[in-house]
Amino acid sequence: MAIIHLTKDGFDKAVSNGISMVDFWASWCGPCKMLSPVMEDLAGKYEGRALVGKVNVDDEPDLARRFGVMSIPTVVFLKDGKEFDRKVGVMPPAAYTTVLDANL
């Protein structure tokens, strides 16, 4: 499963069930570009078990504000639509898989 690009309208429905991992990013952010292949890789590895999504903070300022994103990349983890963890800044892939594996 490829990464899902989330927008304000579809967001709540998309993350309403199970575990989701959402990457808040923008095109003008080098570290975000670095994280992008990691997220794509994880989207494949966790296919069918977790939703891996991306939110462009430029296009979706309301979502960025709602989640209080103050630095990008920020990766937010949700269970049935509720945030339970987040990672700010670029981290090695294991930082994300640890959170996913502990909650799946």
């Binding site: 923008a26 080098g30 570290p31 903070v57 630095s71 990008i72």
Partner: peptide, 13 residues
Amino acid sequence: AGVSYCATCDGML
């Protein structure tokens, strides 16, 4: 959470 080392990354926020 408000502190940033990258103006080009986070300025827009």
